[in-house]
Structures are given as C-alpha cells and as structure tokens.
Design a protein around this nucleic acid. Structure first.
Length: 276
DNA sequence: GCCCAGGCACATG
DNA sequence: CATGTGCATGGG
C-alpha cells in the first residue's frame, strides 16, 4: 500500500520498492547513501530522504507530488515482473532486483548525466555531476539544484574540464547552449520512440546508447534497450554468441518487446553488481 | 604502470 | 553502410 500524507509518502513492504536497488542500478547519480542505510536523493530542484521505519519505507520531502511521479509510484511493478519473468536469460536477475523502479528524471538533467556517462565509470560520473551542481546549481539551502540549461550555457569548456569532464567538455557546452537557445526537450515526449531517439541523437555527445538511456530514464519510453560494455559481457556470457552492438540491441529489443527497458535494468543491476 | 569505465565523433573504405 | 581509431580522467 502507498499512502501520501503532508510531508511524506509511506510505502509498505509488500510493494516493489527497494531504495538500494532503485538508486544503485545505474539509472541515477545524484544521491547519497548515509551510513544508516538511508538515502538522500536530489532531483531537479527537489530533494527527499528515503528511510525505513518498522518495515515500511518513507519518502520524506516537502514535495510529495514530485516524488510520487519521480518514483513512478502509479505503476504496478508486480505486473511487469509477471510479464517478463519467464522470458529467456532473465529469471535470476528479476529475482535479485525485484525492488527496482524506473525513475522519471528531468529531461535536461538526465541528458547531461548520460552525456557525461560515456566511456566513464559510475564513481567518476557521480563526482563530476556533484561538482557541476555545486558550481552552477541554484542554492537551495542544504543542497544545490541541478543547473539550468541557461546556467550551463554560460560556462565554457575550460570549466567543464576543471570539474573532470575531460573530452566531453565541448559536448556539454554545445548541448547546453542548444537547449538554452530553444532545442525543445519537452516536445520529444509526444514523439514515438524512433523519432524521439533520432531527435536526441542530433545533439553532440548523444549516440544510440545515451539516447536510449535518456528515453528510458526520463521520457518513460520502455521499448528501448541501452547496450553498454556490461550488457555486451552479459549477452556474450548468456548466449555464447559474438555479434555487433546494433545486432545485439535489436535482438534484445524484440526478445523483451515493450518491457525491454525494464529487462535491461534487471540484467544490468544483477550482473554488474556480481550477484549473478 | 596497466586496464577499464552505462560510447561518441570523426575519418576512411 | 560498416569498421577503425583517438579520447580525458581517475579508480581498482
């Protein structure tokens, strides 16, 4: 059961909701795990604390409506799991990551995050995004908002190199300037997946994989299957086959169909963490 | 020191 | 269209 009150959302343990799986499955980078096991999450200009009290999770925030949508709480994940559990390769991964939910992140924040993610590791991505928000984000008291396109467009390539973005610095400058000057990220929501992907790939630093991640983690498109180095390893191990990235993506996409995005997250989380 | 990371842009065949 | 190559940075 999910209950929304003034200042918190309460989620009983029979729901598919496990903060560790949600935050550490690689879909999001602006969070911190406290020594208590609680999580602070920063999304756009909002923040929430996720904690467990006597078996129930509580999302404590002054913007419950925002985080109800952010955590995709209107979706019944048991139905999704029932639908894909018997398909090839995935049973153990779903069992391991059954508390995953696909977040609904803000378009620009997600786009910038995954441009930075290219040929990078998660620890570094988190650091770069943290320094980015600290330098350019609006001061919200105890934390910083994610920077606006306008704020990012005013910084130069040198700045992005200083915070550790490396050769991706110019991608960030170009993309931020384009979005700040009218490239409409919101209008992509109403496009079908193919058209949406094509439009995103018009941005510098956005290829097939980054576009799939943005479509999945912010636009809520589930008929995508981001293929990264981990997925390639998983695919080769499970199928004992060798093929190109694009062939792999198309095969996995048809295998899981409209649930491909969920399937990808279960596989990624279980295998990357070494659980399988 | 070496290998690798949620790949991409760009050049060439 | 397909394949190959260079790439900033720092964690392990």
């Amino acid at each position: 059961m999910i209950t929304v009150t003034d200042g918190e959302i309460i989620i009983t343990e029979d729901e598919r909701f496990e903060p560790q799986a949600i935050f550490e499955c690689g879909q999001v980078f602006r969070y911190e795990r406290l020594t208590s096991g609680e999580y602070n999450v920063f999304a756009g200009r909002e923040t929430a604390l996720v904690k467990n009290i006597r078996g129930a999770y509580r999302i404590i925030t002054d913007n419950t409506a925002y985080f109800y949508n952010y955590f995709d709480l209107a979706t019944d994940y048991s139905k999704i799991i029932d639908n894909i559990i018997d398909r090839p390769m995935i049973r153990q991964s779903v069992a391991f990551g059954s508390g995953i939910r696909i977040l609904r992140q803000e378009y620009f924040e997600c786009l910038i995050s995954f441009i930075i993610s290219a040929n990078n590791n998660i620890a570094r991505i988190r650091g770069i995004l943290s320094r980015l928000a600290a330098a350019l984000g609006e001061n919200r008291g105890k934390y910083r908002a994610f920077p606006t396109p306008e704020a990012m467009a005013e910084a130069n390539a040198k700045f992005y190199e200083r915070i550790g973005a490396g050769y991706r610095a110019r991608y960030l400058v170009e993309t931020a300037r384009l979005v700040a000057s009218g490239f409409d990220l919101h209008s992509i929501q109403s496009l079908d997946t193919k058209a949406a992907k094509h439009k995103l790939m018009g941005l510098l630093g956005v290829g097939s994989k980054v576009a799939d991640c943005v479509l999945l983690f912010s636009y809520g498109k589930k008929d995508v299957f981001p293929v990264d180095t981990w997925i390639k390893k998983i695919y080769c191990k499970l199928t004992n086959d060798v093929c190109g990235t694009e062939a792999m993506r198309k095969y996995l996409l048809q295998l899981y169909g409209e649930y491909a995005g969920y399937a990808q997250q279960y596989l990624f989380y279980a295998h990357r963490g070494g659980a399988i």
